[in-house]
Amino acid sequence: MSARISDSLTYSHLWGTDELRQIFDEKARLQGWLDVLAALARAQAAEGLIPAEAAETITAELRVERLDLERVAQGTRETGHSTLGLIHELRRVLPETAREHVYVGATVQDVTDTWTSLAMRAVGGIVWRDLRRIEDGLLDLALAFRDAPIAGRTHGQPGAPATFGWKAASWADEIRRHLDRLREGAPRWLVAQLGGGIGTLVAYGDRGLAIRSRFAADLGLADPVISWLSSRDRIAEFGALLAMITGTLARIGDEVYELQRPEIGELGEPRAEGVVGSITMHHKRNPEGSEHLSTLARLVRSSAGVLMESVVSQHERDGRAWKAEWVALPEACLLAGTALRLGVQLVEGLEVHADRMAANMRTYLGDTQNPSDTGAATDMVDMVVSRARKARAEESPSWP
Rank of each mutant, 00 (worst) to 15 (best):
M308L: 14
G265H: 01
A304W: 04
L340P: 13
G274N: 11
M357E: 04
G239M: 09
T248Q: 06
A240R: 04
R271I: 08
A297N: 11
H282W: 02
E237D: 15
T280H: 08
E348Y: 00
A332R: 05
G268P: 01
V347R: 02
M281W: 01
L346A: 07
E258H: 12
A359P: 03
P287I: 08
R285E: 11
V347F: 02
S313E: 00
V276H: 00
T246Q: 12
W326I: 05
V312H: 12
A336E: 09
G247S: 14
L259A: 00
G349W: 04
M308E: 09
V312E: 06
G319N: 02
R298F: 12
A328Y: 01
S278T: 13
P330I: 09
R317V: 07
R301G: 15
I245L: 12
L307H: 03
Y257T: 10
Q260H: 03
V311A: 01
P270M: 05
E316I: 04
G319I: 01
D318V: 10
A336L: 07
G253V: 08
E263C: 03
E316F: 10
S302H: 08
R298S: 14
A359W: 15
F238V: 07
G277E: 09
E255F: 00
L307E: 03
V306M: 05
L267Q: 11
L350A: 03
L346N: 01
V306S: 01
V306T: 15
R271L: 13
S303H: 13
N286M: 06
A304N: 08
L249G: 13
G247C: 09
F238C: 00
V327K: 08
V312R: 11
G305V: 07
V256W: 09
P287N: 10
L334D: 13
L346M: 13
I264M: 14
G343Q: 12
T246L: 09
P262H: 01
G268M: 04
D318T: 06
V256N: 11
N286R: 04
W322I: 05
E288F: 09
R261K: 15
I279L: 04
C333N: 06
L249Y: 13
A336P: 05
L335C: 01
L335N: 02
L334A: 11
R271D: 02
M308H: 09
A358H: 13
E325M: 07
D355Q: 15
M308Y: 05
S313G: 12
G349H: 03
E348I: 01
H315T: 10
L350Y: 04
A321I: 00
C333D: 07
Q345G: 15
Q314P: 00
G289E: 01
M308D: 08
I264T: 10
A339N: 06
E273T: 14
E309K: 13
L267I: 08
S302L: 12
S278F: 11
D254T: 04
L241T: 13
A359Y: 12
H315P: 01
H292V: 08
T248R: 07
E273L: 12
L242T: 04
E266W: 07
E258Q: 14
I279V: 13
M281T: 07
S278R: 05
T295I: 11
S290Q: 01
H282L: 12
A332Y: 06
I264F: 06
A354W: 06
K323A: 02
A336N: 12
T280A: 15
R341T: 14
T280E: 11
E266V: 04
G319H: 02
P287E: 01
E316Y: 02
M281V: 14
S290C: 06
D355A: 14
E348C: 03
L346V: 07
